[in-house]
Simulated scan of single mutants.
Amino acid sequence: MEQIEIGQTYYCHPVGTKKQVIGVVEKLYLNTALVVVTACEEEDKTLVFESNHRMIVTFTNIHAAVHAA
């Protein structure tokens, strides 16, 4: 896994979601990151909304950076 950077957008699987989401890293902790979810599947929208679009993701569940075309 590449170095995780604040402000970078990643595909990730936050705690509690059923599917992978796209999120921007807002803060790094020891083994987790706080991400602001920018896109998610329909079945996770309620959970994302209830968490104010901010979710915790373990580093092992941050999969790949999203690159602009």
Rank of each mutant, 00 (worst) to 15 (best):
V57L: 05
N31V: 04
G16E: 10
T32I: 09
V35A: 02
T60W: 04
V15G: 02
A65F: 04
V57G: 01
V57S: 01
I62T: 00
E42N: 13
I4N: 03
V21T: 07
A39K: 14
V66P: 09
K45N: 06
I22P: 03
V37Q: 00
T9P: 01
N61Q: 09
K19Y: 14
T17M: 06
E5D: 12
T58W: 09
I22C: 08
N31P: 01
T46V: 11
E42D: 15
D44S: 07
C12W: 03
L30K: 15
H13M: 06
A39S: 15
N52T: 05
I4H: 04
T58D: 13
K18Y: 11
F49P: 03
V35D: 03
G16H: 06
Y29K: 11
A68Q: 14
V21M: 02
I4Q: 04
Y10L: 02
V35H: 00
F59V: 02
Q20P: 05
T58F: 11
A33M: 00
A68E: 11
A65L: 05
Q8P: 02
F59Q: 01
V57N: 02
T60K: 13
N52Y: 07
I62Y: 00
H67W: 12
Q8I: 07
H63D: 13
K27E: 15
Q3G: 03
N52L: 07
H13F: 05
T9N: 10
T38E: 13
N31E: 11
V48E: 00
V48A: 05
N31W: 04
L34N: 06
H63Q: 14
T38W: 00
V24R: 15
A69V: 14
F49W: 12
E2P: 07
I4P: 00
V35I: 15
V48R: 02
C12P: 07
V36I: 13
I62Q: 00
F59Y: 15
H67T: 14
G16R: 09
N61W: 01
V21E: 00
V25F: 01
K18A: 10
V36K: 15
V25L: 01
C12V: 04
K19H: 14
L47E: 06
G23F: 01
H67E: 13
T9Q: 12
K45F: 07
K45Q: 14
N31L: 07
E41I: 05
K45T: 11
I56A: 09
V66Y: 12
E5N: 15
V24F: 06
N52V: 04
E2A: 10
P14N: 04
H13A: 06
K27P: 02
T46N: 09
T9K: 14
I56C: 08
T46H: 10
I22E: 12
I6E: 10
